[in-house]
Each structure stands twice: as C-alpha cells, then as structure tokens.
Amino acid sequence: MRPMLATRGTTVPTGAAWLHEVKWDGMRVLVRVAGGRLQLFSRNENDVTIAYPELAGLVEALGDHEVLLDGEVVAFAGGVPSFSALADRMHVRQPARARSLAESNPVTLIVFDLLELDGEDFTGRPLSQRRTALEGLGLAGPHWQVPATYDDGAMLLEATAAQGLEGVVSKKRSSAYHPGRRSKDWLKFPHRASGSYVVGGWRVETGSTTRIGAVLVGVPAEGGLLYRGRVGSGIAGRSGQQLLELLRPLETDGSPFVDEVPRVDAQGTTWLRPEVVVEIAALNVTSGGRLRQPAYLGVREDLDPADLTEPGEGADAG
C-alpha cells in the first residue's frame, strides 16, 4: 500500500469541515505492527525498518493491538525537524550502524492516521473517526507521538512560519483514506520551496579530479528529464562522498535531459542514468523553470523517479 497524498493549496480553508496539522519535514512511512513485529515501509513500499531501531518499542506500547499507521519519521536539529539530519539515517542498512546513529541522531515517529486496527479496515471511515481511534491508542513515547490538530488553519500557518517549521496540511474531517492517490480533500501549504529532483549528471569540484562539486538535476518527462539546474551548495565532505558512491555505477555516455542543458553546465559533466532522487531547497524557481540558489539536502532513498508525479514533488506528509 502507498500513502494518500495532499494537493498543494492556495488558501488555507476555514470552517468546521476542516482540521489542520503541522507539516513535518521528514520521510513518509506506513507502519505495520502485527504478530509482535514492527515494519516500516517508505512511500515507494521499501522496507526501511532496519534503519530506525529506536522505534522497536512501539510494539510494546501498542499492547495487544495490531495496526497499520500513517506517519512521518522526523529527525530534529536545534529543536526543529531537519531533512538534512534525517538524510544521515535514511541510507543505513547495517544494524550496528543504525543502533549507533539511533543514539547520536535519534528520530521521532509522528503518527497522524490510522488505516487498520485489529484486522478492521479503517480507510473508508471519515478522518474524524480515524483520528478518534488513533488518539485512543495512547501513543506517547520517547520516539513516537500523535501530534495535535487545530481548528484555526490561518493561525497555525502563521505560527509554523514563526517557529521555522515546514508548513501546514489541511484535511477535511469527512475525508476517507485513498491509498496512493493525491486528493484535494488534503491540502498542503509549505513555507519553503523544497522538493525532490532526479540527478542526471555530476561534475568534479574545482581543483579536484575525484571529488564531486555539483549535480545537474531535473524532473521526469516523456523520454527523460526536464532540466532544472546545477546544484553545488551543500555537496561537501562525507555527504558528497556518499552521493558520489551512489552515482558512479550509473555513469553513461549520453545526457538524460530531453531539453537543452546550457553549455556552461554541460561542459565537464559526467552523465548518469536518471535513477537517484535528491532533496533540494531553493529560493524559488525562475520563469524559465530553473532553481534559484539551490542547495543539496540529501538523497531521497525513499523515492524513485516514478514517484515524482509533480515537478519537485517530495515525500512529505502528503
């Protein structure tokens, strides 16, 4: 199963028909607890349980209940959710390394929906009923929580901006849960221009013959990628080395971009098969579709290029 997704909104809705939640800057997951076992699945249905050992206690916290939950894995930096902090956790597949990082850089599971409870399918029930049942599970622990909802979306949007949070998601209380679908019953209002893009090429760092200095990114289009720009900021040190290790096996002779890449960007670029998705923050997008002042945040191992159904669409809370 894949999670239900939100549509980008223009104006935060008002009235009793809607509730509003904080939009979390993390990795969307579906969480199954059954038979005394915890499993976490990313948006592209990969099992990522091994990366987050600190969540194992959720089995005991649920007692005899078996559930399927929808939520977000979040890592905090300076008290604020940070995708950059989470990126260090997402790629880990070695249990010992995961346990070490769980101590130094722990995550929190933010649970905001209940899809199954003790063998009963809740997806056809209205959100208001799903939330009541979810809150009744008493999930408040050292690494998991059920966040509050709010009646005043405009107030929440203003408060999240002041606190440096990612934004707001507004949901109809009557909405059913539609797995894998993007719905206007859920609307998202992010504060910053951050999204996911596919890497189509890489360039060496100035003065080096081996270190990565920049990547060329785009969004999926028929036959390849549409070019969105060159990203160099944020690619350094260990994160840059980890990225290069992922890209090296994908090197190829031809450009994956279906439109023209400016010569200044194409010169010296090593082209890649478009398979790696990365998260990019940018000031905004120019009228020509180029990212302004982009910065690399990390690899989105929870996403495949096929998951990017909208330009720059990430794996956020909807």
Score class of each variant (00 low, 15 high):
145 Q>Y: 01
258 V>P: 02
95 P>A: 14
196 S>M: 00
10 T>N: 11
12 V>W: 08
167 G>D: 01
273 R>G: 04
83 F>L: 12
271 W>V: 02
106 P>A: 09
142 P>G: 08
33 V>H: 00
307 D>I: 01
248 R>V: 15
88 D>P: 01
194 S>F: 05
9 G>D: 06
10 T>V: 13
79 G>W: 12
148 A>D: 13
63 G>L: 05
191 H>P: 10
7 T>V: 12
79 G>H: 11
112 F>T: 01
92 V>S: 01
306 A>F: 05
23 K>I: 09
20 H>N: 05
265 D>C: 05
15 G>L: 10
12 V>D: 03
30 L>S: 01
199 V>A: 07
113 D>V: 00
261 V>I: 10
14 T>E: 14
69 L>N: 00
273 R>V: 09
32 R>H: 04
221 A>I: 05
7 T>G: 11
113 D>L: 00
178 H>R: 15
55 L>C: 02
70 D>R: 02
283 L>M: 11
210 T>R: 15
105 N>P: 04
224 G>A: 11
292 R>W: 00
77 A>D: 15
15 G>E: 09
22 V>L: 11
228 R>Q: 15
307 D>C: 04
242 Q>K: 13
170 S>T: 10
207 G>W: 04
285 V>Q: 08
256 P>T: 08
295 A>P: 00
214 A>E: 11
98 A>W: 09
52 Y>V: 09
285 V>D: 04
102 A>V: 12
245 E>V: 13
182 R>C: 03
30 L>T: 04
272 L>T: 03
161 A>M: 11
148 A>Q: 08
24 W>H: 07
168 V>E: 04
256 P>W: 09
188 K>R: 14
74 V>R: 12
29 V>L: 09
306 A>W: 02
27 M>V: 12
171 K>R: 14
82 S>F: 07
285 V>M: 08
108 T>N: 06
216 L>W: 08
260 E>S: 13
208 S>E: 10
217 V>E: 01
112 F>Q: 00
124 G>A: 02
80 V>G: 10
181 R>E: 12
166 E>A: 08
96 A>G: 08
292 R>K: 12
73 V>W: 01
195 G>T: 06
11 T>D: 14
160 T>Y: 07
211 R>V: 06
7 T>R: 15
291 L>W: 05
27 M>H: 11
190 P>G: 02
75 A>V: 15
237 G>H: 05
22 V>T: 15
282 A>H: 15
214 A>W: 14
185 D>I: 05
307 D>V: 03
4 M>Y: 00
33 V>T: 02
154 A>P: 03
166 E>C: 10
318 G>F: 07
146 V>Q: 06
42 S>G: 04
74 V>I: 13
6 A>R: 05
116 E>Q: 14
237 G>Q: 03
26 G>S: 03
68 L>E: 08
172 K>G: 04
6 A>D: 14
17 A>P: 03
